[in-house]
Nucleic acid binder design. Structure first.
Length: 329
DNA sequence: AACTCGGGGCA
DNA sequence: TGCCCAGAGTT
């Protein structure tokens, strides 16, 4: 019998401490696909909120493939990076016709190097390295490799997966163990004292954070002006999102002024590397339609797919209107 | 390898 | 306001 190694300690820790996440109960192609697409650049806690709802509406790959894109966008509303919703829908339509093998997974829409590896390891249990931001951070600290050396880290993870398989572990478990360690123990703030790897860890033994390379991002400030055309019955004019957020609905950009100008308000939101200041001008109009194609929607109970800026704008519009009513005129 | 894609939450 | 997060696609 082999002596318990540091590696075994990691795996014991993993089997004892891993989180019970919805998409881990059933590692089917569909559940892994949906969860991985949602998890791209998105935190686990946020995905948990959306995953169940999405699964309830589209329980199988086929139901998703047959759905309309607008329905998919609606369930995605608020999750961000809406292109993922379209790409997931396209991937589903492709997958009901043909399931790829091996590296061909990367050719599917929305599925890159990471997600392809995740599907291969988690669904098909292939011995491939799944290298996400968590695993990169863990390996960089553990083996003393700069986190920017992606190729080196990728090779290292591949070795670890093979080593794990030789010791009798499954590829999906080895990959998930490193990922989970990065999420629960070796996160930005590391907790070395509870880490199953710490006795062999370059960073713990060295005592300093030396291997994480952080690149500085530049944040651009942007301004945008929108118009809220409000009817006396509380409906507001919404249009298909312009420029960005394809498939969602929003207030129109300010190009025309009509009716009675009631003033306005401003809000700010961040997106990727931008900080946007949105000014909303409110106009009280009768039934006449603005020039642009759109729909009258209730300010409070809008049934269209909205992004966060649109939701926030409508919320503030409600408050704005309420405030006006309390003013003597 | 670097850049953009335009998200959302959090401290 | 800056930063993080189970990245992908393009040049």
């Amino acid at each position: 019998m082999k002596k318990a190694s540091v590696f075994d300690r990691l795996m014991e820790w993993f089997f004892r401490s891993r989180r019970d996440l919805p998409w881990r109960r059933d590692r089917s192609l569909y559940s892994v696909l949906v969860s991985e697409m949602m998890l791209q650049q998105t935190q686990v806690s946020r995905v948990v909120e959306y995953y169940g709802r999405f699964f309830k509406r589209f329980p199988t790959l086929e139901t998703l493939a047959e759905a309309s894109l607008n329905e998919v966008y609606q369930l995605w509303g608020g999750l961000g990076y809406y292109r993922r919703a379209r790409l997931l829908h396209e991937a589903a339509k492709s997958l009901v016709k043909d399931i790829p093998r091996g590296e061909a997974w990367e050719k599917l829409p929305g599925i890159g190097k990471y997600t392809a590896a995740a599907v291969r390891a988690f669904v098909f249990n292939e011995p491939v390295a799944v290298l996400d931001a968590n695993v990169k951070r863990v390996l960089a600290r553990f083996r003393g490799v700069l986190s920017s050396h992606e190729k080196r880290l990728s090779e290292l993870m591949q070795l670890l997966v093979c080593y794990g398989v030789k010791r009798g572990y499954e590829p999906r478990d080895v990959n998930e163990a490193f990922m989970e360690l990065g999420a629960l123990v070796c996160s930005k703030k590391r907790e070395c004292m509870i880490c199953p790897l710490h006795l062999a860890c370059c960073t713990f033994l060295g005592g300093e954070e030396r291997y994480l390379v952080v690149e500085k991002k530049n944040y651009l400030r942007v301004e945008e002006r929108c118009a809220a055309f409000l009817r006396p019955d509380g409906k507001v004019w919404l249009v298909p999102s312009e420029r960005w957020r394809e498939g969602l609905w929003d207030l129109p950009l300010l190009r025309q002024r009509r009716g009675e100008a009631l003033g306005g308000f401003a809000l700010s939101y961040g997106v990727t590397n931008h900080r946007v200041m949105r000014h909303v001008e409110v106009f009280l109009v009768e039934d006449e339609k603005p020039d642009q194609e759109g729909r009258w929607e209730d300010v409070t109970g809008c049934s269209l797919a909205l992004g966060s800026p649109a939701k926030k704008s409508l919320e503030m519009l409600c408050e704005f209107v309420a405030m006006l009513k309390n003013l003597p005129r």
